[in-house]
Each structure stands twice: as C-alpha cells, then as structure tokens.
Design a protein around this nucleic acid. Sequence first.
DNA 1: GCGATCAGCGG
DNA 2: CTTTCGCTGATCGCT
Length: 420
Amino acid sequence: ALKKAMDDRINDYEMHSLFYDVEMPFSVVLSDMEHAGIRVNPDKLQELSVKFGKKLIELTKDIYDLADTEFNINSPKQLGEILFERLSLPVIKRTKTGYSTDAEVLEKLRAAHPIVENILEYRSLMKMKSTYADGLLALVDKNTERIYTSFNQTVTSTGRISSTEPNLQNIPVKTEEGRHIRGVFTADGPGHVLLSGDYSQIELRVLAHISQDPGLIEAFIKGEDIHTRTASEVFGVLPEEVTPLLRDRAKAVNFGIVYGISDYGLAQGLGISNQEAQEYIDAYFERYPGVRDYVRETIRSTKLSGYVTTLLNRRRYIPDINSRNYHLRSFAERTAMNTPIQGSAADIIKVAMVKVYNHLKQNNLKAKILLQVHDEIILDVPEDELSIVKQILKQDMENAILLKVPLVVDFMQGYTWEEL
DNA sequence: GCGATCAGCGG
DNA sequence: CTTTCGCTGATCGCT
C-alpha cells in the first residue's frame, strides 16, 4: 500500500525515470564507494599535524608578545576583547553577541597592528591542524589504512550529494599548505594511480543549455574562456584587452550566477559597492539576454507552480517566492534561478557515474570509483587498465546527457590526490 | 553532555 | 534590513 502510494506520487510528478533509472542505481554506486574507502598515509598525516603544531606554538608566542598578555586565541570572544578593547583597533563589524573577528574583518585590520597578520596565519594553520590533519587521523582505519566517508544522497535541496565523517568534499586545495593535505590520499598501492575527471564549467554550460542564450552557447561551442568572454561583454572591451582584474571580476559575476548570490554578496566578494555590483549584474543580463529571459520566466512560472525542476525533473518547492517579505522573496528568486542550474549539474554527474560504474563492471575492470566532489569523479585505477578506464570515463562523462553545448572534461592522474 | 555561536573549508 | 550550502571544530553557557 505504501509502495503504491509512493509510486503514484512518483508517476504523478513524472519522476519515474529519475527515481528508477538514476537515483536507485546511483545508491548502489555510492554504497560501493563508501565500502571501498580511500587509502591514506597516516605517517604523513601525523607529520603534517606536528609541523602545523610547531608553527602554531611559534605564532602563539608572537601573538602573546604583541598583545603583552596571554589569552585563548581560539576564542573569538577573548580575541575580540584583545583587538578592540586592549589594542583599541577599530570595530569593522559586529556579530549577534559581540565583535566580529572573521578573516574579512582581519584583512581590513592587517595594516593597523602587526598582531593581525599573525592571527590570520594562526587561524589558517589551526584550521589545517584541527579539522584536517588531526580530524582525518582520527578517522583512519588502522587495519586497512583507509578512510571511509559516508555519502548522503538526500540532504541537499538541489540534488547534490554530501559527505560526512569525514567530509571528503571540502579537502583544502587553494593554498600550498592546504594542498599538502591532499598529498596523504594515495592510490591503492604500487601499480595503481588515482585518476580524476572533472567537468569544465558544468554549471555555466547547463545555464547556456537551459537559457539557450546565443552568446553563451557560442562561447562554449567555440571553446572560449568563459570568464574572459563575460569580462569582454560586461565591461565592453575586446577579449584581448581583458586584464586579469577584469577577468577576476567577471569570474565573480559568473560565480554569483551559479551560486545564486545577491548583489550584496557580489559586492562583498569583490569589495565594491552594492550599486556597482548591481550595475555588473544589469550589464550581464544586457549582454546575455537569454539568461535574463530565463530568470524572468523561471521566477514567473515558480510563482504559479510553487516549484522549479531540473533537466531530469528533480523538483524543489520554493514557497517564499510569493512572500511579501522582500528578503525572503529575493532569496527565493535566487533559489529559483539557481536550483535548476546546480541541480541539473548534479543530475548529469549522477548519470555519468552510473554509466561509468556499469561499464567498469561489464569489462571486469578492477578500477573503482572512490569519490565525487560535485563536478569531478576520482577513481583508483590499476596502471594496466588506465587506457581503457580513461576512455570509459571520457565517453560516459562527456555524453551523460546531451546538451546544446559540449560537455568538456579535464583528466588528471597521479599517485596522490595532491597531484591531480 | 548538549546546543548555540563563530569561524572557515570546498564546489 | 540583507549575505550560497553543507560540513566540522573550538568555545562557552547551560543542564
């Protein structure tokens, strides 16, 4: 009776294929990934912890000297008292309960007192040591020298998966120190390599497809650098005249489109005024009118139906779309335009992974899918299977779902995750 | 021991 | 007035 009730609703929502052809097979893929785990080098992890710890001791000394007192640097409350009362630095921002001491605030105070730079470095190193070095070490299986994460298929609103205990979807990559954490994740042993395939600009390609914007489609068909193209369009200069600064700003605008941030969020991200940010957004919609129309039409239809859908008919309800509260409504509007983009990208990589999984099985290959980090798939591959597995990965990822623009995948291989 | 708060990581 | 999500760790006040 329950099955019939659920089946009726799945059919009613036209989600039969999404459920039976994608999510159900995908659950088996995730299960195998969890069971496989990923090999780590615990000694290297321990070394990193010690190295971070030694630097933290030095920094702690320097910070105490500069403050001329000892306090708990890990306590935002105590740190705030030191910075804004004892050292009388200007208060930039407040939290609900007191002074804000986040990185954005500290960046603005960098020049005001030498202690600030030390605190920034301390914060970064403490994050690396506590969350990553020590946190991961505690979750290494001593018998197998592997880490087994849990993937959750049903927590996000967009259709993405999440990862816990540990979260292997937010391992550092942006800083040199952070990348070394990736160096502790290795292939299964000599004769094996890690192979990654990551989608290039999958969200913006999905946007090009669903909006059918001519400029966006042309950019991807011609294989242009999308951030440079956007900079050229938004700032009205020739592509060859796009400076790194302009490209960075355009990249932030594209980021905003993909993640559904507000003009306020874009302004914060770029360190410009809200008005300036709004002007960038207006210019973007002016130059990509298909995107403007897509956003308008999506908001209009969401107000009527109460939900948005992805390429594979995944559905998200957005009740606040008709709220009289400006902030709730604005947030709902960004969610309405963003969810089909992120959610469709999630659909695509799930389909790809099911295909890869089946093809590995059909060919009796030992290669295993280990991780998925939203737009990339990481596998462990015996070296003698590398050629065939690469072919499978390329074929299945690039042809997971046919779009009006090509899906481009970049491949990397190495003995450790840091090399990918 | 637990929940709220603040902070910071990735895509 | 606002701030992308999901995750984890440290602190702190509470039971």
